[in-house]
Design a protein around this nucleic acid. Structure first.
Length: 465
DNA sequence: CTATGGCACGGATT
DNA sequence: AATCCGTGCCATAG
């Protein structure tokens, strides 16, 4: 049994229910915005700091020891520890957020971008480096690229070019990622490197950008496929990944100007909403599940505010009481949300433990409805809780929470395995048979679909000479 | 005749 | 109510 950090409140009013539902569906970043606006508009709300564990900086329960560092070693390994983890260094996943630039995508980059970047990187630069950084950043063009030659800058400052490149490297890693590159190709490569820390990069993606940038920009996918000796579909898939996740013009919104600017990049998960890891980094240990909260400390109704109400005139009292009610409701709803998230993740981790520890092959195909029944909540509750959130797995991959409900991932993984291990090209029907031997029964037609999803060519085009 | 891809239907999800 | 995914049926390529 895991401890609840808060007392659980059953929803009593429709307002309570509605707000809980809304909060439940928010990602950590959206939740931060919501909390910020509540805090700003309601004086009865406040955040109190908590004691932190000296080792892991995690929040400590009242009069308690750190749930992780002082965890008894003999605890039940099957039972994951689920708890809410406040993150005070929370950075929104807005690396590619184009809202700042979308209004005038072709206007010159203002000083805002320059100072925006400098603010981010200044702390990690020496005095000399700061001068160079400012020089570089004031010479950015509309697209966020350097309009000066690195060699010239080096000469100007009387330093080796490697010094300039060092500073450039730091600038490129700032938000928007890739800013300060000399061309789209360099920007893409930087972004790809950064992204490779958090999500899996398709094979050949780097090569395509590095070696075939000219073909890529002309969309000569067939030519790329020929040169790399891989299928066109596979190239298309990689290109899709690139255009979904990378931005060749860091200071602009998207590819060219034709891309739909309102589509949120649902495929990019920079910051997870839930972290799953092994206790003490030991694979034999139990799993730790952290529900990320985008603020430090605990949100509560201000006791001072309560106190003040009693000493206030009758006229103001009503308005203040209203604030108090709203604040109390908000806190309760937030607790409800966290409680639901804890129960959800606890159950989910129990069910999908082998997926987390052994890999994608072991993802069990479960439905949201079955989990809803298990937890005795409405299925729409699960839907809301799952949508738009991402999870960092013990292997450091970041995947959408919806991946836990993917009905075909394990099948596709095994399919990939079958195809790569068998030397003679197997037809879809034969693959179907192999799959059912391994406990996965799907239609022949579906095998074809999975194959396409994985970018695997049809049997007769899969020769290995 | 066999292997695949296209289209559409039905159930699950949002 | 709108959308996505697995399947069945059928046309087409080889």
């Amino acid at each position: 049994m895991f401890q609840y950090q808060y007392q659980v409140h059953k929803p009593i009013t429709t307002a309570h229910l509605a707000q809980t539902m809304t909060l439940l569906s928010l990602s950590a970043f959206e939740l931060k915005q919501q909390i910020d606006s509540e805090l700003a508009s309601n004086p009865a709300l406040e955040i109190i700091e908590e004691r932190r564990c000296p080792h892991c900086k995690r929040i400590l329960p009242e009069n308690g020891a750190c749930p992780i560092c002082s965890r008894p070693m003999n605890s039940d390994v099957d039972e994951p520890i689920v708890y809410v983890s406040p993150m005070d260094d929370f950075i929104p996943r807005s690396d590619y957020d184009d809202s700042d630039y979308s209004e005038e995508p072709f206007s010159p980059v203002t000083d805002d971008l320059t100072s925006y970047v400098i603010k981010q990187i200044a702390p990690e630069l020496s005095k000399d480096q700061q001068l160079i950084a400012v020089h570089l950043l004031t010479n950015l063009d509309d697209d966020g690229f350097l309009s000066v030659n690195l060699m010239d800058v080096a000469r100007y400052f009387h330093v080796p070019i490697s010094t300039i490149e060092e500073v450039q490297k730091i600038i490129q890693l700032a938000d928007p990622i890739g800013v300060g590159s000399v061309n789209p190709q360099q920007a893409l490569m930087v972004q790809l490197e950064v992204l490779s820390d958090s999500i899996t990069i398709p094979e050949y993606a780097y090569e395509i950008i590095k070696d075939f940038m000219d073909l890529l920009s002309k969309r000569q996918h067939i030519e790329i496929a020929k040169r790399l000796k891989i299928s066109v579909q596979r190239v298309e898939k990689i290109v899709e990944f690139i255009s979904d996740n990378l931005n060749p013009f860091p200071a602009r919104s998207h590819w060219g100007s034709v891309r739909n600017p309102s589509s949120p990049d649902t495929n990019v998960y920079h910051r997870p909403d839930v972290l799953i890891s092994y206790a003490n980094n030991d694979q034999k240990s139990q799993l730790i599940v952290e529900i990320v909260m985008p603020y430090s400390g605990t949100l509560q109704v201000s006791p001072l505010y309560k106190q003040t109400i009693k000493e206030t005139d009758a006229e103001l009292k009503d308005a203040m009481k209203g604030d108090l009610e709203k604040a109390s409701l908000f806190v309760k709803c937030l607790q409800q949300r966290n409680h639901t998230m804890q129960r959800l993740m606890h159950e989910l981790v129990m069910i999908q433990k082998s997926y987390l520890t052994k890999g994608e092959k072991f993802l069990k195909p479960i439905t949201r409805a079955s989990l809803a029944e298990e937890l005795e909540v409405h299925e729409s509750t699960i839907s809301r809780a799952v949508s738009g959130k991402s999870v960092q797995l013990p292997n450091k991959k970041i995947v959408p929470l919806a991946a836990f409900f993917d009905r075909s991932l394990s099948a596709r993984t095994i399919l990939r395995e079958i195809v790569s291990s068998e030397s003679k090209p197997l037809s879809d029907t034969e693959i179907q048979k192999k799959l059912s031997e391994r406990g996965i029964q799907v239609a022949r037609r579906t095998v074809a679909k999975y194959r396409a999803m994985e970018g695997i060519l049809p049997a007769h085009l899969r020769q290995a000479p």
